[in-house]
Design a protein around this nucleic acid. Structure first.
Length: 237
DNA sequence: ACATTAACACCAC
DNA sequence: GTGGTGTTAATGT
């Protein structure tokens, strides 16, 4: 058993096992899991955003800010991702609300000081934080790219394509996206209206590029989706 | 032209 | 019944 592990793992991952260094998972293992319904508020900034770091253990969470009664989605997090990483590094907190985007969304939280302490003696945890921050930056850059260069329809195509590759389960040549977001949430992410998302999605379904129900979304033809996101509007009849 | 908002019917959980 | 979806008309840029 051990010999198999040694073959598969490189030295850097074996050594921490020997010294029983806590992984990110085990750090959260002892803390209770909290579950939320879609739309439920997980926290708002003035409460405990500056006190805890969160691990998304199921579903999806969005971070949003409010401006003149308008909601702006700042970022979103999926299962396995760390939320509130900037707070660990001492970044100035913003006025934001965390909300469950899909049913059965659950999180675990641990106090920031405790997390900082663990961070000091655990380099793999540090890498975990870095990769989460990097992923967050990538999502934001993708959104900026869409808003700057793409039409409303293309923004939906582009988000779907990137989301399928990033978060979908590949089955043959197709990608299963689960859990499924509401059209409203896709609209917030892609920067388009709710009705636009509905019509674009239905158009794609009619053309057989995707298929979806309220439970899952299937990308049947990723390359077509990527092409649509690139081509200037009229590549179809 | 293109896109969002409003309005309303319909459908699923 | 509520929240989400599908469709069309009005409105804005």
């Amino acid at each position: 058993m051990l010999t198999i592990d040694l073959k598969r793992e490189n030295l850097a991952t074996v050594i921490p096992m020997v010294f029983e260094q806590p992984t990110c998972r085990s750090l959260f293992d002892k803390t209770p899991e909290e579950t939320f319904k879609r739309g439920q508020t997980i926290f708002w900034e003035r409460n405990h955003a500056d006190k805890y770091i969160y691990l998304v253990t199921n579903g999806m969470v969005k971070l949003s800010s409010s401006h003149q009664n308008r909601e702006m989605l700042e970022d979103y997090f999926q299962k396995g991702e760390l939320l509130n990483c900037p707070a660990v590094l001492g970044g100035a907190p913003q006025e934001m609300t965390a909300t469950a985007m899909v049913p059965q969304t659950s999180i675990k939280k641990i106090p920031i000081p405790l997390f900082r302490q663990a961070l000091r003696s655990n380099s793999s945890l540090y890498e975990e934080v870095m990769s989460n921050l990097s992923a967050s930056l990538q999502r934001t850059q993708d959104r900026l790219h869409r808003l700057t260069l793409l039409s409303a329809q293309q923004r939906v195509y582009d988000f779907l394509a990137k989301h399928a590759v990033q978060s979908g389960r590949k089955v043959g040549f197709e990608y299963v996206i689960k859990p499924v977001l509401t059209h409203q949430e896709i609209g917030y992410i892609a920067g388009v209206g709710r009705q636009t998302v509905t019509t674009v999605l239905n158009e794609l379904r009619r053309e057989g590029v995707i298929h979806f129900t309220r439970r899952y979304l299937l990308v049947r033809n990723l390359t077509m989706l990527q092409d649509l996101a690139r081509s200037t509007s009229e590549a179809r009849q």
